[in-house]
Amino acid sequence: MADENKPRVRVPKTAKKGEIFEVKTSVTHPMENGSRKDKDGNVVPRNIINKLVVKYNGKDVFGGDFGTAVSANPFLSFHLKAEESGKIDLTWTDESGAVFTTTETITVEG
């Protein structure tokens, strides 16, 4: 269960140069807002994913800053334009400092 929080990502394996494609991603995280109580009535400490950084071949292309109103097990989709073959890195960070990363590769043709 080491990869319990490994984000799931879907990007096309190949795309034509200039094509705009969707990136869909989801990560398993409780997004504790700090007001929920556990079975014994103790407040579960706040810990949410508050940041996402997306890099395309090392360059910042998309990002997000999140509050407590993002649902548990966050889902997000956005778009990127296929310019060159390479890597798309997604890095989610939560308030405890935990980092969840994935790297997807895409081949751009033409």
Binding site: V61, D65, S71, F75, L76, F78, H79, L80, K81, E83
Partner: peptide
């Protein structure tokens, strides 16, 4: 609290279109 999410986009996105889920 009023803040839900803030997204930073760039021309590399090609399209300004997002889907997410909120509380």
């Amino acid at each position: 609290t009023p803040n839900v999410a803030s997204y930073t986009l760039s021309p590399a996105c090609g399209k300004a279109s997002i889907n997410m889920r909120m509380r």
